[in-house]
Structure formats: C-alpha cells, structure tokens
Write a protein that binds this DNA or RNA. Structure first.
Lengths: 228, 228
DNA sequence: AACCGTTTTTGATAGTTGTCAAAAAGCCCG
DNA sequence: CGGGCTTTTTGACAACTATCAAAAACGGTT
C-alpha cells in the first residue's frame, strides 16, 4: 500500500506494511551430545579444514577440544525459525536442508552434505532470530561449536580466525555463482548445471526440495527431467 | 522516517521516504594517484570501518599508510573482464557498477556507492581472471589496497583480519537476502523492495542498469514503474 | 503380494515476462 | 532554441513457467 505526497515542494512516498504476528518457537525432540569426541572420527574435519588453511597443532587441538558431537536422525530439526542459532556445525556425515516458509509453502534454499559447514548464517552472525529452519534429510553426525567458544578461539588463535575468513570467501563465491545462475538461466539450464556440478544432490534429495532450491515448480522440474 | 500503527488489532509500520532530487555528478578528467593521502579525507573510511570493528590506533595507522587514493571519472573502467583484480577498494565518493557480458548483453549485477568496499570478489580472492567489469557511474574517489599489502596487514594486525572477517559476514548476509528476493519475488515486488530499501539507486542509476540488476527486462521495469 | 501414504508425473489452462520494433521523451551541446 | 544522440516508454506477440487437478509410480510395512 503506497501513497505519494508533495510537501514543501518536495516529493515523498509513503508505504504501509503489515507486521505479521510472531509464531511460537518449537523445541527439539531429542538431541544427543557427547562432550569428548572420539579422535578417529574427527579426522574428516581436520583433513577438510587443512584444505582451507593448515592450522598449527596448538590451534588444531584447541579447536577439537571445543567441538561437541551431535547425532540426529532423519526429519529432526537442527533449528526452527524464530529461534536464535547459537552454533556453527561441521557436517561429518549425512544431509541437511535449510528452508523457510513463504505463503504456506516450504522453500528449500540450501542443502548441506559431508564436509560442509552449517549454520543459519544470518542468525548466527547477527544474534537475531532465524528466518529459516534446518532439517535433517538423513541421519547425520555433526560437530558443533558455540558462537562464544568460537570467539574465544578467534582471540587465542589468529590462525583460526584466518581459517574462517578464508572459508567465508569460498562460501561467498559459491553463493555469488548460484545467484548469477539463478537469475539468468532458464529452468532447463539450471537442471543441467546441477546434473553436471552436483549430481549427488539429485540422488539424495526428494524432487520437491530440489525444485524450490532451483527456484522452479516441482511440475516444471519433472517435465524437464523427462526430456533427458 | 517510520511510524508504528495499531489498527483493528494488527500492527502496521509506515515508512515515509523523501524522493531526493538528482545530485549533479562531479566529473574528473583523468586518473590521479597520490601516495600519501591527506588525512582529512580519510575520515570517512575510518568512521565507516569503526562501525564494523573498532581498530586500535596502530592498526588504523598501518591501514591508512597502505591505502592509495584513486580518482576516476565517469564511464572509466576500474577493471575489465579477463584481468586479474589485485586490489580491494573503498569507495569514498561516487558510484560504480559491476557487470558482465552474456549473449552480447551487459548484465549489471551490483552497484556500489559511498562507503562500500569494492572489488571483483571472485578474482581478488582466488587470483584468477575476473569475469566481470567494474565501471564508474559517476566520477569517484576510491582508496585502494593490494592483495599483498592486505595479507601483510593481516599478518601484523590480527584486528584487521577480524575487521575483514566481520565485513565478509555483512556482505554475505546482504547477498543472501538479495538472492532469496531475486528468486522468489515477482518483478513488481522487487521494484517495491528497491523503493523501500535503496531508493538512492533509482535516483542515480540509468533504468537499463537497474533492470538487469533486478533480473528483469528494461521494458518490464518501465511498465511496473508506470503503475506507481 | 497387497495396502496405504507419499512422491512424481501428466494434462490443461492462465498469467507473467521477454523479445522485437517503433515511438516518445529526455539530455547535451553548439 | 534546435538538432542529434541516448534513454525510456508503449504495443503486439510468443515463450516459458506456475497453478490446479488428477493419475501414476514408488516405498515401506504388514
């Protein structure tokens, strides 16, 4: 709803927006935590991290000691919208999706698989309530660190902050590329792209989720697929 | 200027935006570089940076001593595609656009204005040739730092790396929001959004550039505008 | 193997937006 | 003030995709 006004020789435009009421946040059903992780399973994380930026031993140990293992089963939620996301996760095994509700529909806007860092980035960095949900697509193993612990690591180990800075660069570029593709490619091109660049997603994720990830309707995706 | 209203049990927020008259752009004839910038003009940068993360004096000085002033005039290029972007810029005054060529068309995918950090992020961080061009929309004043100098600052001043890490977070969130909007809103909603969130762009940038920025054709944008 | 709920496909239709082409408006400069 | 270039608007049409509805396929369970 808008309205144009002229006052004292200058133009103004007035907008009126309805503020929707808050929805009550829902809590986790079950969540298992073990304080000290077994060393053997954390090698995935270290190997992966060293590809971003190799950490000195002291920083590595500090990082490992700050992580908690989280095991969740299929369809559980890691986060629901309106909650504040206080942790950053490393996904060792499994698959997740991030989605939000829009006009009563679930819009999946990202997937995460093995070796991905996962969080509700907006909520985690700003400390404000999340607008998205994070749900398990498969039973998964995650390693979590709280925002406070991470800040502590940043203070004590410059290298860890560097690692994160470098990780951000990779993730930014990834998003930028997705953005450009989403905006200027046809539905068919998007699907072809996905076939080429991330066929694993197609194998592990229901079609409906993939459709909204690509920004097209499920029916359109189905029709495109039948052409291949 | 905003105002909250309660009507029939629901909350509304009212925005009033002044449509500012166009400012006459300043033109510069040629590229000039001065190694040591006058302190008075760098206050913009410092003030802005302190909003991200306040730097200690030593880090501030080191940063300022690494910056070079660059003045470019309208329509000049800061970067052409296939070049490697070796600098990060802070835009003190003026306006730029980033665009790439696709099927013989120029696709503008970002704008930068006062107090924005500017670079071809992909090329700068990876060291690979840029896929985009950066062009001046107005005569502009920029402060530049090379990738090597920045790395040196990171090594000597943990706080500067932190500042950049925090800046990345803001820019990531900004891109994420744009992405979600671009993918799931209609052309009209995108235009309304722009009216609300960045009306200054509409005043300073030709319509054709804005259309491709929003991911719609110039004709569609023109038709939407006529409805207001 | 049969059943039930979920996911995917198919069909018909309508709406939105892009494209091409031309007219109109705006702007700079002499 | 007028000419020439650029930018914006308007019109007609085609293409693509969303939507709604229903059928088919799939997957897990008994």
């Amino acid at each position: 709803m808008t309205c144009n006004v002229n006052y004292a020789g200058e133009s103004f435009v007035i907008y009126c927006i309805r503020l929707r009421p808050l929805i009550i946040p829902i809590t986790f059903t079950s969540l298992s935590l073990s304080l000290l992780p077994a060393n053997n399973t954390m090698e995935y994380l270290l190997t992966h991290i060293n590809r971003y930026y190799p950490l000195p031993a002291a920083a590595q140990n500090a990082l490992l000691n700050s992580l908690e293992k989280t095991v969740l089963s299929k369809n559980e939620f890691l986060l629901k919208d309106r909650q504040i996301c206080r942790h950053l996760y490393f996904l060792e095994k499994g698959a997740l999706r991030g989605f939000y509700n829009s006009d009563g529909k679930e819009i999946t806007h990202w997937f995460a698989f093995e070796n991905d860092f996962v969080t509700s980035f907006y909520s985690f960095t700003t400390g404000l309530p999340a607008v998205e949900n994070i749900q398990l697509l498969e039973g998964s193993i995650l390693w979590s660190i709280s925002k406070e612990q991470l800040a502590e690591l940043f203070n004590n180990h410059h290298e860890i902050e560097r690692l994160v800075r470098i990780a951000y660069e990779k993730y930014y570029i990834r998003l930028e590329e997705r953005f450009v593709n989403a905006q200027f490619k046809t539905a068919k091109e998007l699907y072809e792209n996905m076939l080429l660049q991330s066929p694993h997603i197609l194998e592990r994720v229901p079609l409906g989720y993939i459709a909204s990830y690509l920004g097209i309707s499920q029916e359109t995706l189905s029709r495109i697929r039948s052409q291949f």
